[in-house]
Design a protein around this nucleic acid. Structure first.
Lengths: 306, 306
DNA sequence: ACGATCTTTTAGTTTCACTACACAGTCCGC
DNA sequence: GCGGACTGTGTAGTGAAACTAAAAGATCGT
């Protein structure tokens, strides 16, 4: 007793003849007859009986045909389950971000998607090396990753949605001699001690580019990934650091000065497996991420700070 | 997307590896892998993903696996539908009977099965010739039929449950000269005019046997199938008639006298197709029919008449 | 009685799920 | 770190199952 045989039985109940069922199912009457015989073989009481030259259902056959209808509707529901799953606006969407992007984007995202019937956010921070961003898309629907402008592009296995192209400024103590200048050149800062990131993390290449532009080798005094930690060290006179202009919360004792002469920008992208955007909820979050990026770029992110 | 593929997907969700599913379903992992691939071909988003060297369900896969469970339970219900149909005590049971059996059995049957949760009776009278009783089992669950003791048995296509072996008495007007005798011989009645049944109906052979036993040819004055009609004609002096001792309601102006010397009995059987008794409701009615037969034989049928 | 209609049977073909086997990726212990 | 165990996947071949075609059997209407 399989789905097809039950289907045939139900059709026979509705259409009232083997020929009609065959026409409806686009096969020969012979096929219908054979399948009915197979179904009957599994059941100890007659399901059909001849009525003149037509074949109709017995009471037992009608009972089984009724159950067949339930099987078919369950199958139809199963066939629609995937689309429904994809079209649900309120599914859980997991988003991973490296620290500074999380600090900047997560609050905006939570605020934008606070209402009911929207995606349920599952946020996570993930500070990994450049190469480890793409694999994160296996675990998270969306991954906020960053890379330098001239770094190699993301692998083809992931889709990258550009969110922000953010300048990297030089952070220095408010009382520092260089703080008086409106903008800094590589020669201004090449001899200063630098607070760099760990190996494999994106900002590193820019520090090296600055030193190279001035014909020096960079003085790497400290290795600190976390911008908030680095900011404190800069304020305490530990050295200079490159800091993103928009996504790091301003430190009261620090000033950010733009660099000229070298391309010092990082790109923030949302990475994801292509199929993830089949889900409406994921598309919604991605749209909100772009909106948040505009907010951040236009300097509206910290409005609530007065 | 068929039932088997959904089954495989569900098992994969529960067991967590292709090999485990293969073991559970008694096939090779290759077969599982191929079926998963076929299922995936019909769905635009990934249902499974590698996790180390194992294969697990994606969220979409889990959604579909959930729907698969419903399909399976619907199929399981379908597989049990027939048995449930057979085990239901409250189905409709159709019973056909020739006139006198209906008059005697139907009231007892209705009284015995009056309660709720019992079979719903669909009664019908059917006065047909001997040969036409077996075909009635196509239309009715149970058919009360009668035949003479020495008549050929019912064909093998039907099952016969013996209910009653009933003497046939000679009915004569209360004032008839023969009414004084306690029992009658063939010679007593052979020369009397008879009220016989139509050709092909069971009682005929016995009338002929009586005449033959006396060395005569029977005088067939009238042809009346219905015992109640025949009784009125006998009472009016139209002739003698053979009447069943128990299943005909006594006529006030008639007496019934037993015959000796010839075997004058009819058998009342319940005929049915063998598979009909697969239904519990039919078995219940058959049991009640046997009980009713005892009641009739023991003369308790007309208790309510005072 | 005959043709039309419907179902069933039989034989042959096609389709499809499966096995066997080889191979590739991943984990684990020495 | 490297072979060996484990897990999943691809390929060719096999067998079962569902189908078509053709013919026969059954029933209806004229």
């Amino acid at each position: 007793m399989d789905e097809r045989q039950l289907r045939i039985l139900r059709e026979l109940g509705e259409l009232g003849s083997v020929t009609a069922v065959a026409d409806a199912l686009l096969v020969t009457p012979s096929a219908i007859s054979q399948q009915l015989r197979l179904l009957q073989r599994a059941i100890p009481v007659p399901l059909t009986e001849r009525q003149g030259r037509r074949l109709v259902l017995t009471d037992a056959g009608q009972a089984l045909a009724g159950a067949a209808t339930e099987v078919e509707s369950a199958l139809a529901r199963a066939r629609h389950t995937v689309e429904e799953f994809l079209d649900r606006p309120d599914g859980e969407v997991s988003v991973a971000a490296f620290s500074s992007a999380g600090a900047a984007f997560f609050p905006l995202l939570l605020r934008a998607l606070a209402g009911p019937d929207g995606p349920v956010l599952a946020l996570a921070d993930a500070d990994v090396t450049q190469d480890d961003f793409p694999p994160l898309t296996r675990e998270y629907d969306l991954v906020l990753a960053h890379r330098l402008d001239h770094a190699p592009p993301w692998p083809r296995t992931v889709t990258a949605t550009p969110l922000l192209s953010e300048p990297l400024d030089v952070a220095l103590p408010a009382g520092h001699p260089l703080a008086a200048k409106p903008r800094l050149t590589p020669r201004d800062v090449a001899d200063q001690p630098w607070i760099a990131v760990h190996d494999g993390f994106p900002i590193m290449a820019t520090i090296e580019a600055i030193a190279t532009a001035a014909g020096r080798r960079p003085r790497l005094a400290h290795r600190i990934n976390e911008f908030s930690v680095a900011a404190e060290v800069v304020a305490a006179g530990g050295g200079l650091a490159l800091m993103p202009r928009w996504t790091s919360r301003p430190h009261p004792d620090l000033v950010l000065k733009p660099l000229s002469g070298v391309q010092a920008r990082r790109r923030i992208d949302a990475l994801h497996r292509p199929e993830r955007t089949a889900r409406k909820a994921v598309r919604t979050v991605l749209t909100e991420l772009r909106g948040a990026a505009r907010t951040i770029r236009d300097g509206l992110a910290h409005d609530d700070d007065g």
